[in-house]
């Protein structure tokens, strides 16, 4: 009974918060609400018996996405009022049909939602998922946790391409910055003692917890991506605390970190072709291969996400200099 109450309150508040996130006139407020929504979503994953997803949401949704958005919101705070005013003003065809764009957009959005609902209602009565298949095949995968066996064995293809997407995103950010490494990105000049303290505590603990999640991923929720995301968050914290972090890496090491996992999947895949199929390893050495691949995923995810953050968060030079000049020295 109360169990259901938890679900209803959670679902209702997520919907309301999402609405406010999008319609909030002030960007910063909207971003904090978005972070709150991420937290509520991870509670929803918990209620839907998906601890793996909750872990990923905790590390990525609450950690990295929040940081990215907070940065984006703040650097633009000054232009906020002007932008809001311009958004309200209408011209062109919008002057003749006030609100027409909104009505069309709302209609389209509702139509999509309706189609989605119809599809859900139309689902066959009997569950037709792959739970059974995964359960019977898991023995052969080399690991005892179903999600890991899907991720790194049955559908390793998907995971390989995902790692490829990460690599592409990192290349994109580097291209946008017209650079081969992140050494030109802004590093925090004056250090804050508390922050140094926090970084010194969190870095070793993050390594410990990431190692734990990596290792336990073979038999319980956890795994390489979550571990990598936690390490990435720790690297970002280092950067924020004034250490060099990932932007201290040379082009060679950055590139190696970014490409490691993609290359490892490729290599394992080709070795697999000698046994008949690309990326197929359903035999005794499965666990070893999976652990090795996961280790490369940890490294590549950590480096890539931290690099994406450093790249996306950096400001155009003269602007940040002005900010620094105005910031008073810390009194601790």
């Amino acid at each position: 009974m109360l169990e259901h109450g938890v679900d209803i309150v959670l679902a209702g508040s997520i919907a309301v918060v999402a609405w406010r996130v999008l319609l909030e006139p002030q960007l910063f407020r909207s971003m904090v609400l978005f972070i709150a929504m991420g937290l509520m979503l991870s509670l929803a994953w918990v209620r839907l018996a998906a601890p793996d997803i909750a872990l990923a949401e905790a590390a990525i949704g609450a950690g990295l996405t929040g940081i990215l958005l907070i940065r984006a919101a703040q650097t633009e705070a000054a232009q906020e009022a002007a932008a809001a005013a311009r958004e309200a003003a209408t011209s062109g065809w919008r002057r003749w049909f006030p609100g027409a764009g909104r009505i069309v957009s709302a209609a389209a959005a509702l139509a999509f939602a309706a189609v989605l609902l119809v599809a859900v209602i139309d689902l066959p009565g009997e569950p037709i998922g792959l739970t059974e298949a995964a359960a019977t095949e898991m023995e052969a995968s080399g690991v005892e946790h179903p999600v890991t066996s899907v991720l790194l064995n049955f559908r390793a293809y998907d995971t390989w391409l995902e790692v490829g997407v990460l690599l592409l995103a990192a290349m994109g950010v580097l291209a946008i910055h017209r650079t081969y490494n992140l050494r030109s990105t802004r590093s925090e000049e004056h250090t804050m003692l508390v922050l140094t303290w926090l970084a010194r505590i969190i870095l070793p603990l993050a390594v410990l917890i990431a190692g734990y999640l990596y290792w336990s991923g073979t038999h319980q929720p956890g795994g390489a991506f979550q571990a990598g995301a936690i390490l990435a968050a720790a690297l970002v914290l280092m950067q924020l605390a004034g250490f060099r972090g990932v932007s201290g890496l040379s082009t060679l090491w950055l590139g190696a970190g970014l490409m490691l996992s993609f290359a490892a999947f490729l290599a394992v895949g080709f070795i697999g072709t000698f046994e008949g199929e690309f990326l197929r390893y359903r035999h005794a050495t499965g666990e070893l291969i999976i652990l090795a691949l996961e280790l490369t995923i940890v490294v590549s995810t950590a480096v890539t996400l931290a690099a994406l953050f450093a790249g996306a968060g950096s400001q155009s030079g003269d602007d940040s200099d002005a900010v620094r000049a105005r910031t008073p020295p810390e009194s601790l």
Binding site: M192, V194, L195, W197, L198, I201, I202, E330
Partner: peptide, 12 residues
């Protein structure tokens, strides 16, 4: 540890 640090930062 996290909340003590965060609150000190917010206070500053």
């Amino acid at each position: 540890a996290g909340s003590a640090t965060a609150c000190q930062l917010i206070a500053n």
